[in-house]
């Protein structure tokens, strides 16, 4: 499985990471080695096998709909990188 530099760049963009040239090269090679290692799964017959996504036997049940306190505004403000006028601030979301 050959991975191009552009493949790694595209994945990094999806993951919202910006990688340096050195990182692109290193992660590309390592990703290729890891994907090569997991290729062995192709030898397993898996037709008709259901995928397993979770293992807890717990089932959903409704809880009583009672109001309970959440975080206070002061607690949210203390955590936020930028907070003004009762809001968490972020940079521009829409381009003009």
């Amino acid at each position: 499985m050959a991975l191009t530099r552009r493949d790694v760049e595209a994945v990094a963009h999806l993951a919202r990471l910006s990688l340096t040239e050195a990182e692109l090269e290193r992660y590309g090679a390592q990703l290729e080695a890891i994907l090569g290692y997991v290729e062995s799964l192709n030898r397993l017959p898996l037709e008709g096998v259901e995928p397993t996504t979770h293992l807890s036997p717990a089932t959903d049940r409704a809880r009583p709909d009672r109001p309970a306190p959440g975080l206070t505004q002061a607690e949210v403000e203390a955590l936020a990188p930028e907070f003004r006028a009762g809001s968490v601030r972020v940079p521009k979301i829409l381009e003009e």
Partner: peptide, 18 residues
């Protein structure tokens, strides 16, 4: 970088995330 944890400045939100 929005509600808690480290934030680096960016010109727009995607740059800030990255």
């Amino acid at each position: 970088g929005v509600k808690y944890g480290r934030r680096e400045d960016g010109a727009n939100i995607v740059e800030m995330y990255k």
